[in-house]
């Protein structure tokens, strides 16, 4: 999860990002942010996500678990 948070911190300035932090509600990530982050997650973590994954896995924690399951 820390690796995912490090990537997210390249896109938003949030005081604190935790497992419960929501991509849309708390971080306000746009569609463009999501597409760029998908690229960076693929490069850094070796997992190819789809934009729809950010709808299904709404929080940082949920997404981190999903990324881990795909490794």
């Amino acid at each position: 999860m820390q690796e995912l948070i490090a990537i997210i911190e390249n896109y938003v300035e949030a005081d604190e990002i935790t497992a419960k932090t929501s991509f849309k509600k708390d971080l306000g990530l746009s569609s463009f942010d999501t597409v760029c982050m998908i690229d960076e997650i693929k490069t850094e973590l070796g997992v190819k996500l789809e934009p729809a994954d950010f709808v299904k896995y709404k929080t940082v924690g949920e997404m981190a678990e999903y990324i881990e399951s795909r490794k």
């Binding site: 390249n10 896109y11 300035e13 463009f32 942010d33 597409v35 760029c36």
Partner: peptide, 9 residues
């Protein structure tokens, strides 16, 4: 029209 601003940089 695309803004092309993803990361903080």
């Amino acid at each position: 029209i695309v803004n092309r601003r993803g990361n903080l940089n």
